[in-house]
């Protein structure tokens, strides 16, 4: 197994892990915020997909990756607005709405893609990276971590920012209260529905950004159903992280690594059918759930719409 330990292999693996992990990290952090606030967002997949499509179209037509990411986040925000209206304001079942958002996003993006691009799949050029001085020269770590598009740095900074918010502000407390004991938060004079709405909005923007990353930096193109379950994987990561952003980071990178194994194994010249390799990440999630399932705790009022005075 010597080819597995060459620098080329490790480099490809780590680079791929970050590339595949960042979309999951962004969406997972977002999901964590809304789960804390008591909104189980099964529509995450749909938010990512809309972000991927809008992000791709914006970057492709303007030639600007930055604009693509803004558009991706905006599209995710738009889907989140629908979710806020239906789940937080109208108190419809979150799971039903989440399934609908995902199906609707799949159908809508596939239709829009068809009418805009027919059967062609234009590719974006590679994005220019912002190498960090000195750090980007490190072997293996440098190209994987420190010679990337700014969104990658942004995603890592988001982890730090969320931890800071958690330690230093009352926001996290209010989020948790909205998820665990919404009645108590209401009595304390905080608008539960506003907290939840904001939480879902943050989720949408982050998931949309993650989707745009997947299309523009990960694949370099958009195909219908591009996200292929990434949103659901991000939900699992958020569930297992139990409110800790650092754990989402860890999970996303491990998961990204198992996705990147495909490319890395091919670099090493080992031939395994792709179908088997595609099973690995999902098998890994199931294994983790079997081992740690009991610890994947969720807030008490998760999935329950908050209607004042209903108990």
């Amino acid at each position: 197994m010597t080819p597995l330990l060459t620098e080329a292999f490790l480099s490809a693996l780590l680079y791929g892990a970050v590339s595949a992990g960042v979309p999951l990290l962004l969406a997972g952090l977002g999901e964590q915020v809304s789960e804390k606030a008591g909104v189980l967002n099964i529509g995450l997949e749909g938010m990512m997909l809309c972000g991927a499509y809008a992000g791709f179209v914006a970057a492709w037509s303007s030639g600007s990756f930055a604009l693509g990411f803004v558009a991706g986040a905006a599209a995710g925000l738009l889907v989140a607005a629908v979710m806020v209206l239906l789940c937080v304001r109208l108190a419809l079942d979150q799971i039903v709405v989440g399934i609908a958002l995902t199906l609707g996003a799949q159908g809508l993006t596939a239709l829009l893609h068809h009418f805009q691009f027919a059967r062609s799949y234009p590719r974006l050029p590679a994005a220019t990276t912002w190498p960090l001085p000195w750090l980007s020269d490190l072997p293996v770590l440098g190209p994987a971590l420190f010679d990337r598009h700014p969104v990658v740095y942004g995603a890592f900074l988001a982890v730090g920012l969320l931890i800071l918010l958690q330690r230093r502000t009352r926001l996290d407390l209010q989020l948790r209260a909205a998820g665990e004991r919404p009645e108590a938060l209401d009595i304390a004079g905080v608008d539960v529905r506003l907290v939840r709405s904001l939480a879902v909005a943050v989720t949408g923007a982050l998931a949309g950004l993650g989707g745009a990353f997947l299309a523009n930096l990960g694949a370099g193109l958009f195909v219908p159903f591009l996200t292929n379950g990434a949103g659901f994987v991000a939900i699992v990561l958020a569930m297992l992280a139990r409110g800790r952003p650092l754990w989402v980071l860890l999970g996303a990178m491990l998961f990204g690594a198992s996705l990147a194994l495909t490319t890395a194994i091919q670099v090493a010249g080992i031939n395994i059918p792709t179908d088997i390799v595609q099973m690995l990440p999902f098998a890994a999630v199931m294994l983790v759930l079997v081992l740690l399932g009991r610890r994947a705790s969720l807030p008490a009022a998760l999935g329950r719409p908050y209607v004042r005075g209903s108990g």
């Binding site: 239906l86 109208l90 419809l92 609908a100 199906l103 609707g104 159908g107 809508l108 068809h114």
Partner: peptide, 19 residues
């Protein structure tokens, strides 16, 4: 017209029936 139209129809139907 791709039959993905049906995905959208089903999604709207789901929300509409919940409403």
């Amino acid at each position: 017209v791709p039959h993905h139209v049906n995905l959208v129809i089903v999604a709207v139907l789901l929300v509409a029936s919940a409403l």
